[in-house]
Design a protein around this nucleic acid. Structure first.
Lengths: 328, 328
DNA sequence: CCGGTTTCTGTAACCGGTTTCAGGCTCAAG
DNA sequence: CTTGAGCCTGAAACCGGTTACAGAAACCGG
């Protein structure tokens, strides 16, 4: 098999301590010894076992990241931003997709045993699991999830931009708006609704709420059906995410409803398909979320931070033709 | 800190060997001893160190996966399919995005030292790195990449479906087609072009080739500009992927070219945005690619396979209105 | 009652590194 | 010539588990 530090030591005629020193801090070894060790190491093509090293140093040199899925464009971007910074910092990245699996708790606990800290995205696991980990001293950062006491957290701004979205809809001529989403599931969605309400109050816009089962295209289609059965459509429909909005728009079109002539539609996330569907939406700094989480986590692991931090990154309203001003 | 096997042993009044046995194979320990060990372990809330275990067992219980990026929808899906199976098999998943970084070689080597085997997606690193790893005995599976001698490989079918695509374009009234892509970079693209040529020959369709610098929306836009400067547009443009096609269509529209009236356009991949742009494309079994790779890798790690395997998964032509029959 | 199994447990070596500690050597100052 | 400091190096303990091996106790049939 692969050669070990003892093989190299024997071959170079030195002790394993010297080999170890030569590998990690060449300057503290005499030039002659260093040469001999290097030669032996080269010849045996020796690579220090990461496992041995990790065990001795009592650190994994790896971070975990937990997310519900990677299907949408959302989490993928966050993971990339995270991986980028983490690997810049010389740490390996372990991933875990929960897919709403019931065994998520055990899976996360196992994961925690393999890394020096972890980032948890979205609604993957209940708070008590996180608290338990935090109590065990596992460095933890949450992203896009309601802050848990004492745990660092990074999120994207919701309230203010939703407020701006309401103003925009009112300025486009809407007098009523239906918010489509499921605020029970996600605090992000709750905040978006609250922001929308606040902005709507200011602009004299009437808000009602329509809950969906699933926050995907299917859910949008179901909502379209429901809305078309009503006496009249609202002036605008603000969806909690883009997939919902896209599904909704497709289903509306099939029923002969024209956006934005008959109803304004907006989404949230600015996924790629939103551009092609000309959907007004809100762009989130996805990579930045991941990158910030990675830096926070690194600070925690290095013990550079005591006070838990909560960071909210700004979002941006992207206006497209799905919310063009209505002709009176 | 966390308690160790020796703490538990002391507390339960047994040897560490007994604790180890009680944890991993309860049946070989007497009931009374088991009870005592369990009690002590509970009380100290002991969790066996994965590091210690891994070192002793000389296995990591983890697999790596290397990909260029996670931005597009493509690799994300493959990674999900992979993660799903791998975690089903009880293995952790380490990720590495190369982003075309020059240090990719070192990064992969480091990664290889942390896991029992790895999957390499696409054009992330040169063949000699893989050969070197294979020689070192690292179990290896490549996905969507030209097979390397002796290395397992999983890919999606290109030739046959590209052939079908050519037939479809001919049936839609095209007499000439431009293939947009960069066959030098990716063997997949080369195969698609070859398949298209084969089908075109059969159907009496004239094929020419236009190379792009980048295979993204930007590249499509550049190509649109180039094509519009020619005397006449071709009847059809077959793009090597959807992003190219989407960028192309947007830029064409800006120039007043109407798809499919003035020119037929097709993509490849069936990303979400393609549905909304009504783009004819080819769907690949992305999750399956990842899942198959995970199973192959597991077989290799377990030593269940000797002969290198190459698997090609079928793809499917998805016809949408971007290639609707042209009126004469 | 005896020898041979079977069942359970402990001792100790081992996985592959890091690091503390102490000792040998060299060298310059006293 | 002694002494103290500084530089290198090796012995050995340690990180936290697994497991080969051997021995003790219990059990069994003859």
């Amino acid at each position: 098999m692969a050669s070990t530090i003892r093989d190299v030591a024997r071959s170079a005629g030195v002790s394993i301590a010297t080999v170890s020193r030569a590998m990690r801090e060449p300057s503290i070894v005499s030039v002659e010894t260093l040469r001999r060790v290097r030669e032996a190491a080269d010849q045996l093509d020796y690579t220090p076992s990461q496992l041995g090293r990790q065990l001795a140093e009592r650190r994994h040199g790896a971070n975990g990241i937990v997310f519900p899925d990677l299907s949408g464009p959302y989490y993928g971007e966050v993971v990339v931003g995270y991986e980028d910074v983490a690997s810049e910092l010389g740490r390996a990245v372990l991933i875990l997709a929960t897919h709403g699996r019931p065994a998520a708790r055990e899976m996360i606990t196992r994961l925690a045993g393999r890394c020096d800290g972890l980032v948890v995205l979205g609604h993957t696991v209940s708070d008590d699991v996180l608290l338990e980990l935090a109590e065990r001293g596992v460095p933890l950062v949450t992203v896009a999830r309601p802050p848990v006491t004492g745990v660092d957290s990074v999120a994207a701004e919701n309230h203010r931009t939703a407020h701006a979205l309401a103003s925009h809809l009112a300025a486009s001529g809407a007098r009523s708006v239906v918010f489509l989403g499921n605020p029970d599931r996600s605090p992000d969605v709750t905040e978006r609704l609250a922001g929308l309400r606040a902005g709507a109050d200011e602009a004299g816009l009437e808000v009602s709420e329509l809950r969906v089962e699933t926050m995907d295209e299917q859910g949008g289609a179901v909502a379209a059906e429901h809305l078309c059965q009503q006496d009249a459509l609202p002036d605008a429909i603000a969806c909690a995410n883009d997939e919902l909005a896209l599904g909704l728009m497709t289903a509306l079109r099939e029923r002969g409803v024209v956006v934005p002539r008959d109803v304004l539609v907006t989404g949230w996330d600015d996924i790629m398909a939103a551009r092609y569907a000309e959907l007004t939406t809100v762009r989130q700094p996805l990579r930045d979320l991941g990158a910030t989480a990675a830096r926070f986590l690194d600070d925690l692991i290095a013990g550079r931070r005591a006070e838990p931090r909560i960071e909210v990154l700004p979002t941006e309203l992207i206006v497209r033709s799905s919310s063009s001003p209505r002709e009176r």
